[in-house]
Design a protein around this nucleic acid. Structure first.
Length: 565
DNA sequence: GCTTAGAGCGCC
DNA sequence: AAAAGGCGCTCTAAGC
């Protein structure tokens, strides 16, 4: 059963109930005050809530203390279907571009002031349709029709897409729930770490003590009294003047140089980055009441991975992870999937040999044990080469061994690369399709085939084709891994809800591509670990049925995030 | 003064 | 010795 929400979450709301065939059962119009209790009442029958944008509707419910079990996020699902190869012949894909295309996620503003203002506006306008002028009922009908049309000729593809839409929508719920709760963050621990590394917090801006000292050292060693080490241009000139043979100021190039300035400069760069990216200013901006509140952008990456907006939540450096600490009486259960992408391509290609290499837990060691490569480090290098499309170096040299040993799995990514080089779309296991290459790309390819094209045109076209091939190669692996991860956390979320007791509810607090943090009452740590493991097994079965691939996890209960690795 | 591009580096 | 997929953020420098 579906309940489609229309209107505005902060003004008048229409609730339209549809049965599983999409036939209208009932429809009501409610004021804002009536809306919240009605959702609470109807949630008991476990409907799938259909709404324009989870980021628009769900915060209002979460603010009122309501969570829902499932939803259908029209904006996200539209994005997937509109681009999906499998949906190419449907009305949804053929229709001219409209307001549902490329619509950004709603910006969520915390607090009630804006909502109150918006309410006034919404009430005053008395406009039919949704707050953004998009018709949820019509769009939902179109999406269902698209799935039905696909099901007629390709039932398996339709079923997979349906799973993807459900997983993506569940991800949207999780993202809002995590944003609302935040990640436990101890500013005192963070401040102590910063003070230890950088010196005391500067009272009136300016560089912290340690950075200032290092700057002086660098200026002295380079005999450049006025040098600003943050200026790449100044720094590069000064380095050259001092006799270093570098063409940039990057870490890797500096490391190869023998000069007394190298060590202090690398130290400066490391600390300077910490200060600017995750220093006191970051703490002031993003941590409130002991919680870091990043905004997750579901499907923000073309491959289906999430992005974040603000706070750089997906790049928390190791230096500050100690500040992620469980509340008293609580614990952090941290889990990550080991060698996820190799397992994914093994399962997608039904490569039983590669799947078997991962059976014991460490797939890279499995490659060594199978005699494919000599060391674990080389196994990793070779595998990354296969997944990313290495063309030179050790990685590229080792890759052919993988191709010989695992022609199915490696053939899958090779095939994706060839498709991309031709400009074709590729798709993940559940049916998320890659974008088409841009206009520049097409122009370059066409130019290279014309009779008067020069060697430079052809080189450029070939280069662009290979670049796009590397992208599509990685797309199928990264994108399908993202799908597995979505199914994993979706299942985990449901399992965690069932574990709640009078001492609290364990909940997802962080998600990073193939890793989760669950904040849990301490006494539930083992049950949470089991839930995480079971959810991973479910996800594997959901995507790949009985194919014998395992998704190995490392799961630990810790008091702070830095203890997890 | 504001916007944008590139460099550089953090994460997976 | 560098490189090969996906990002976000901060800084500087350059352009308007």
């Amino acid at each position: 059963m579906f309940i489609v929400l229309g209107g505005s979450p902060t003004g008048r709301v229409t609730l339209t109930e549809l049965d599983s065939s999409g036939t209208r059962v009932s429809a009501v119009s409610l004021s804002r005050d009536e809306f919240i209790p009605e959702v609470m009442r109807r949630e008991k029958s476990r409907p799938r809530w259909v709404w324009e944008d989870t980021a628009l509707w769900y915060p209002v419910l979460l603010n009122a203390g309501i969570t829902v079990e499932r939803c259908h996020d029209l904006r996200l699902c539209h994005g997937i279907l509109r681009r999906a190869e499998a949906a190419r012949e449907t009305d949804l894909a053929r229709r001219p571009s409209n307001a549902w295309d490329d619509s950004p996620a709603e910006q969520v503003v915390l607090g009630t002031t804006l909502f109150d203002d918006m309410t006034d506006l919404a009430d005053a306008s008395d406009e039919p349709g949704d707050s953004t002028g998009r018709d949820a009922l019509a769009e939902f009908a179109l999406q269902r029709a698209a799935l039905d049309a696909i099901a007629e000729t390709e039932p398996a593809a339709a079923a997979r897409l349906q799973l993807l839409l459900a997983a993506e929508s569940s991800g949207a719920l999780i993202a809002e729930e995590m944003r609302a709760r935040g990640l436990p963050w101890r500013t005192d621990v963070h401040d102590r770490a910063l003070t230890e590394l950088l010196g005391p917090r500067p009272l009136f801006g300016g560089r912290p003590e340690k950075l200032e000292t290092l700057s002086d050292t660098i200026r002295t060693l380079l005999e450049s009294p006025g040098l600003n080490p943050d200026s790449q241009q100044d720094l590069l000139r000064a380095l050259k003047r001092a006799g270093l043979s570098v063409t940039s100021t990057s870490k890797w190039e500096l490391r190869s140089q023998k000069h007394p300035v190298v060590d202090p400069l690398l130290e400066y760069k490391k600390l300077s980055r910490l200060n600017s990216a995750n220093g006191w200013a970051w703490m002031d901006a993003w941590v409130r009441n002991g919680r870091f509140h990043p905004e997750y952008v579901v499907g923000g990456v073309v491959t289906g991975r999430w992005a974040t907006r603000g706070g750089g939540a997906l790049q928390l450096p190791a230096q500050v992870r100690g500040a992620v600490m469980a509340d008293d009486g609580w614990t952090l259960v941290v889990a990550d999937a080991a060698q996820l992408e190799p397992r994914i391509i093994a399962a997608m290609s039904r490569d039983e040999k590669m799947a078997a290499a991962g059976r014991q837990g460490d797939l890279y060691q499995g490659l060594v044990d199978a005699g494919v490569v000599d060391t674990r480090a080389n196994a990793k290098l070779a595998m990354l080469g296969a997944l990313y499309g290495a063309t030179t170096g050790e990685s590229a040299r080792l890759m052919p061994r993988l191709m010989r040993a695992y022609p199915l799995a490696i053939g899958l990514v090779e095939h994706a690369a060839r498709s991309g080089e031709r400009g074709d779309q590729v798709s993940t296991w559940l049916g998320r399709s890659s974008p088409h290459p841009g206009a520049d790309w097409q122009v370059a390819q066409r130019a290279a085939t014309e009779s008067e094209s020069g060697a430079a045109d052809e080189r450029r076209a070939r280069q662009l084709a290979r670049d796009w091939g590397r992208f599509t190669r990685n797309f199928v692996a990264q994108g399908t891994a993202a799908e597995w991860a979505l199914c994993w956390i979706a299942g985990l979320r449901i399992r965690l809800r069932a574990l709640a007791d009078e001492r609290g509810e364990p909940h997802l607090a962080f998600f990073l591509h193939d890793e989760v943090i669950v904040h849990s009452p301490a006494h539930l740590a083992d049950a949470v670990a089991d839930a995480i493991t079971s959810a991973a097994e479910d996800a594997g079965r959901l995507l790949f049925g009985s194919f014998p691939v395992n998704f190995a996890l490392t799961v630990v209960a810790v008091s702070s995030y830095d203890q997890a690795k």
